[in-house]
Amino acid sequence: MKKFKLKFNIEKMLVISFLISFIICLFLAYNVKSNTTLMVENAVLRKSYYSYNLAYNTVIELPEGKKKNSYLKKLNAIKGDVFTREVKEANSLIEDMVKTNSGKIYDYAMRKFSEINLKPDDRSYFYSELSRLAKTHIWTPDYLEAVNAVSDAWVDMTETNVKKAEEKVLKVELQVNKDYLTEEIAKIKKKIKEKQ
């Protein structure tokens, strides 16, 4: 009798857990559609690169069908408003930085993003994307030490600081970044001479 009761209880628990799992799956499926709809509506309303990408990346994960095609048509209709000259320029700067691992392009892009006419969402997105990618492509320990030394030399323009910066720059492995920081040191030396 105990075996039967134990087996019956385990079967009941399995059925109940299956039903709970099924209900959770239905709830999640409903929310995915709701979230997708909200994301697409937000993208159409804001017409920002950031909101467009969020919506597009969500829609692309949906199974093929009428709903997915409907979402893609809505997103396609705003492409011209989203992919502006400024957005393309920002994307191009990030791509160039990643291809070359150039600190100079990173610095230029940081300045440029504040100058070009980007929507606030897009400006924040591009700054964070640039910073995220720079952590793996630019900010190596040797480059970071050299940048700090060059920054110190800019702040306190002394021969001692310039010498320290030059020593750190010599240790930078990537030539493009070594050249960039060497250019910066040359500018500092020129300023020092102008003051004398």
Rank of each mutant, 00 (worst) to 15 (best):
A153F: 06
Y125Q: 02
I185K: 04
R132C: 00
N53S: 02
E86N: 06
E184V: 03
W139D: 04
M1V: 10
K190E: 08
S128N: 09
I185D: 05
I23S: 12
I78W: 13
L170P: 00
T37V: 10
L54D: 14
E41T: 13
S124R: 10
S17N: 09
L26S: 15
G65H: 15
V169I: 03
E194D: 07
K164Y: 14
V169D: 00
F83K: 03
A186P: 01
M110N: 05
A186C: 08
K79L: 04
K79A: 05
S70P: 08
K193L: 07
K163M: 12
L45C: 15
E61N: 12
D152I: 03
K168I: 00
L28M: 06
T158K: 05
Y108I: 10
W139H: 09
C25I: 06
N42E: 07
Q175D: 05
D96K: 14
K5N: 03
L28C: 11
K33F: 14
L62F: 08
K191D: 02
E184Q: 13
N101I: 00
K193Q: 08
Y50K: 11
R111Q: 11
T37W: 12
L26I: 15
K74P: 11
S128L: 08
N9G: 00
N101H: 07
I138P: 04
L45M: 05
S34G: 11
Y30G: 15
E11P: 00
L181T: 10
E115F: 12
K47Y: 14
T37K: 15
E89S: 13
K178Q: 09
A186G: 12
E61A: 14
R132V: 00
N69L: 11
H137E: 06
K178C: 10
D142I: 14
N42Y: 06
M110F: 03
A153D: 07
K67D: 10
K163S: 11
N35C: 01
F18G: 02
K195A: 06
F22L: 07
V176A: 13
K163V: 14
L54Q: 08
W139G: 02
